[in-house]
Design a protein around this nucleic acid. Structure first.
Length: 394
DNA sequence: ACGGACCCATCGTTCCATGA
DNA sequence: TCATGGAACGATGGGTCCGT
């Protein structure tokens, strides 16, 4: 441990280059969370969603380049080609989750297309699911034009997924599991056919089977043993740092799970590593705890991003050389709990919440010693007096 | 000492976008 | 069409603080 005082965070981090880089490559975390699961949600959520949409509407990110817009809406470019064009022509396109706004725009565009061409809902449905791309080029181009910067192929996949007729969602019933297992044993892993039988979408059947039902008996759940943790750490570090790769980004979790003997699944390994083992590894075997100081840093870092809404935050960019223990996942969760600690946060804008939090965390004494807070902090003197205590090496 | 409120750490599940 | 990585969210149990 270095001397505590050397560690004090530089309070307001340097002003950032603002976010203006709406460019490609890294994702400006599109807008939102709200859709997709919306069906299960309440009117209250809808209201909030609307508020966010209104907010975001204020700053339309219009495509500056009509030729590019046309390209995106008409050519079925694969990702390699897209990346190439981005490199050579400065083509700007959008990746990642579709925002609530985009969702709305698509819905409207489809409906507009339907009425304009005097089609029935059935005919639209056929169009979306027809295998004949050529005939429907017009349809896909038109609706793609409604979502600026999205490539036509992304819209195609997105719409086909969201309009899929199979309604079953949510938790899998034991009976569904049995039906799935039976279907797979009869038909093999032909997910489209299995899907018909089970009544869930093909991809959902596949995920469920692969992640939870296949070798159910081999799979361990619950707490990881010391041995498992060591094994995972060994495997991940072998595959990354020892190969000159980045252990936060360059891990193939399928391979890792295999090397764990399939006793733990992909997600299990990934979450165990990113949320827990990686920070232990980074701090030399110690298990760091989230401290007030971390909260303080987090709030100031977010403030310095100058985003309009926390859904715009790219959580991966927050860590720096001196503060990189926490995964993006954890930071995002920490932020949520921080945010929810503000009374009335549901009805506040991001800026209002930030104003309150920055004040609240402004003079928070960054505590170098997370544990042991036996004394009441009657005075701020205490922090100083603790110096000698800690296991001091140096 | 006890119990409730709150926060934190961890693990699990479902849904989604992308690459090939 | 399939495989993959991962985002979003849920659930649970432990730890800490604090009043009684």
């Amino acid at each position: 441990m270095p001397g505590p005082s050397a560690f004090v965070p530089p309070l307001p981090p340097p002003p950032p280059p603002t976010s203006a880089s709406s460019a490609l490559g890294k994702r400006p975390a599109t807008s939102d969370v709200i859709l997709g699961r919306t069906q299960r949600k309440t009117a209250d959520d809808t209201r909030k969603a609307q508020k966010k949409i209104d907010n975001a509407m204020l700053v339309p990110d219009t495509p500056p380049n009509a030729a590019h817009a046309n390209l995106l809406a008409t050519k079925w470019l694969n990702t390699t080609k897209l990346a190439e064009l981005a490199e050579t022509q400065g083509l700007v396109y959008k990746k990642g989750k579709f925002s609530a706004i985009e969702e709305e725009q698509l819905k409207n565009a489809i409906e507009h297309y339907r009425t304009k061409n005097e089609l029935s809902y059935e005919q639209i449905h056929e169009m979306i699911f027809s295998k004949n791309d050529k005939r429907d080029q017009n349809f896909w181009s038109e609706i793609t034009a409604a979502v600026p910067q999205r490539p036509i192929v992304a819209v195609y996949h997105h719409v086909r997924r969201t309009h899929h007729p199979l309604k079953a969602r949510g938790k899998w019933m034991p009976s569904e599991d049995e039906s799935l297992i039976q279907a797979v044993s009869d038909l093999g892993q032909q997910w489209e056919k299995v899907s018909q039988r089970v009544g869930r979408m093909a991809a959902d059947c596949r995920d469920r089977y692969r992640n939870h039902l296949a070798d159910r008996d081999k799979r361990a759940i619950g707490h990881w043993t010391k041995e498992e943790e060591e094994e995972l750490t060994r495997i991940v570090t072998e595959m990354t740092v020892e190969q000159g790769k980045d252990m936060d980004n360059d891990v193939f979790w399928g391979v890792v799970a295999k090397r764990m003997g399939d006793r733990r699944g992909r997600q299990q390994c990934r979450i165990k590593w990113t949320d827990s083992l990686s920070k232990t590894y980074k701090s030399g075997g110690q298990k760091p705890r989230w401290s007030q100081r971390d909260a303080h840093i987090l709030v100031h870092k977010i403030a310095s991003l100058n985003v309009r809404d926390d859904t715009e935050i790219d959580w991966k960019v927050l860590p720096d050389e001196s503060w990189n223990l926490w995964s993006a996942h954890i930071l995002q969760r920490r932020w949520m709990t921080l945010k929810k600690s503000v009374r009335g946060w549901e009805d506040m804008t991001h800026q209002e919440i930030m104003d309150i939090l920055t004040v609240k965390k402004a003079d928070m004494p960054p505590s170098p010693h997370p544990h042991k807070r036996k004394q009441k902090r009657s005075a701020e003197v205490i922090a100083e007096s603790e110096d000698g205590a800690a296991a001091g090496s140096e």
